[in-house]
Design a protein around this nucleic acid. Structure first.
Lengths: 350, 350
DNA sequence: CTGAAAGCGCTTACAG
DNA sequence: CTGAAAGCGCTTACAG
């Protein structure tokens, strides 16, 4: 490393022949009235000395860290998209991001919050996992703005969520309206909020009649398990003509199983997924999927944190975003000409 | 927010009837000799008051932030995997992560480094993009440990890279040894270091004879462009029987084009990609791909930063990791029984 | 083992 | 417009 002494505001002040107060004002408070002459001397001197203000000291003196904490369960495609949305909006707002991955552990999540608090961050965004326990503190106890992305058992928190029930309803409607009369819902765990809602939307649409029946297969968490479940289904000569998978991962596993069993998608079996993976458009047949606006959710969360800092948390409301169904080949749309101009079905706003 | 006054170390000291020095020693320096009685009083009092040490103050007093800065070009699957590796290792080492996404802009990268420096971070990890300009500072000028992940034009920096040339050589060898005599290399930009190396490995293997020829198609950056390029190739009755794509995204686009053109993979055209996307195993046919150990690279970078803090940067060396080729159906391996137990070809170590 | 006090490098009333 | 000085909440030689 280098041996030159770090130069501080005092060095600049001395060299420029002004007080440290003046240096601080010129460098940190653009609007503060300082004589043009002093201003120039400070600017020139700071530049000449290569002065880099110690943000740590500033942060300590002002107790504004210009940093928000972000806690996420994992960094898969969904959360990476969310994080990108958070980061983009934060940068726009001049905020840095302290990132922590907490897994599925409520314990680690609380520890992360401890860190955020101890570090005096300006706010925090807690991205909920599939199944989180309630946060152990109320928003008031936190003392800094906190926004939750995704469903969370606690009440009182401001949240950014997505209308999973409605999206699932629309996806099911899409399948029913194409003539499918027995549809399988392939899912992970019906108690996890997002998946509970997707199940609810599925059932809600089926309950509306037209003679379509549903069948729920739970306990399927990844491609390999979906592959096995669907392979079994085919072996048992299922009467279903469509599968609504709770995630694209499950949908891809299902499609692999169908292909290996010699069945065609969608003529023998239609498939729809959730998440709209980047690759889903380029799988063959391409996969119809519900796009979760994870990046928009993340960006919205940052907005809300910023708002809470100024307006006060009490005048804020949680927000619910609308997912969109991207219709592709796997559900029975065979418009090859429109292959690259993907067709989009936007859910009407509630 | 709450209106209770923040309680500080002084409050704890007063309540416990000891000096702030004693409180500090009990709470922050486990080994420091303090009478058991005083220790207990401090512990109990701190707990009772709900004292949360102000890490900002500590950090300022000690000038150790226990935080490393991470700058990444984007947050796609590759970098998300890398970030997960960084985060995991950092957490193990008790380090927090300040994350910045800088896009393809050298300017923003420098700004991010300015931030890291101004915030007095303990170290930084710069993840290079496909084509970065040189860093504007030398490691010495930075003054804190810095490790680069990926190729970078600067010399003098410690880097963690992957042997792209060798991986590409092996992938090409795999295709040649299966009897392919004309192979297409589908790539983005031959001047970008990683892709230049992949091209080099491709050419190196072809130069070894056996009569296999190569054809390079440049300027293909995503699935859609790969789709178009391959569609054109097919229309022009290419004599190639295999495609080596520089990324899985390109490979997936290529496979979609082949499927839509009525060609079979791998019997009509074999395909191999780079990156080993999570979904590549479950596409049909499954995609043979070179796995880039992005998470291991990230973890290694954290290790190196930690090492530099203690050992001094001068006794450290850059590290080169070995990618692995995951052989699946798309390159002509039809072992359906081994579908879920993916076959792995580990590159021999250099 | 313990405590009084200096110091970390800024910001910001306050007085001029 | 300017500066001397207090203060942010800890840590840590130093003296006892």
């Amino acid at each position: 490393m280098d041996t030159r002494k770090k130069i501080g505001i005092r060095d600049v002040a001395k060299a420029a022949g002004v007080s440290v107060a003046t240096v601080s004002r010129v460098l940190a408070k653009a609007e503060y009235p300082v004589s043009e002459e002093a201003r120039q001397r400070v600017l020139v001197t700071a530049e000449a000395l290569g002065y880099v203000p110690n943000l740590l000291a500033k942060t300590f003196a002002t107790s504004r860290t210009d940093t928000i904490g972000v806690a996420m369960p994992v960094l898969n495609a969904y959360y990476a998209k969310m994080l990108a949305g958070i980061e983009g909006e934060a940068t726009k707002a001049g905020l840095s991001i302290l990132l922590t991955i907490v897994g599925a552990s409520d314990e680690r999540r609380e520890k992360a919050i401890d860190q955020f608090l101890a570090r005096q961050l300006d706010g925090m965004i807690i991205c909920s996992g599939a199944k989180d326990g309630p946060l152990r503190r109320t928003p008031d106890q936190l003392g800094i703005p906190a926004v939750i992305v995704g469903q969370q058992p606690n009440t009182g928190y401001i949240t950014v969520t997505v209308d999973n029930r409605r999206a699932s309803y629309e996806a099911t409607d899409h399948l029913v309206s194409r003539g499918n009369r027995h549809i399988i819902f392939l899912t992970s765990n019906n108690e996890w909020p997002d998946f509970r809602d997707r199940l609810a939307g599925f059932q809600e649409r089926l309950a509306e009649g037209e003679g379509a029946t549903g069948e729920v297969i739970e306990g399927v968490f990844d491609e390999a398990q979906a592959y096995r479940a669907v392979t079994k289904l085919v072996a048992e000569k299922t009467t279903a003509t469509a599968i609504l998978a709770a995630t694209d991962r499950q949908a891809l596993g299902a499609m692999a199983a169908l292909a290996d069993a010699g069945l065609r998608v969608p003529s023998d079996m239609a498939v729809v997924g959730f998440d709209n993976y980047h690759t889903s458009e380029f799988v063959r047949p391409s996969l119809t999927s519900v796009d979760m606006p994870a990046d928009a959710m993340g960006a919205k969360a940052v907005e809300l944190v910023c708002m809470a800092k100024t307006a006060g948390a009490d005048q804020m409301a949680s927000v619910v975003l609308e997912p969109r169904l991207f219709i592709r080949q796997s559900s029975g749309s065979f418009d090859n000409a429109a292959l690259l101009a993907q067709s989009v079905k936007s859910l009407p706003s509630a």
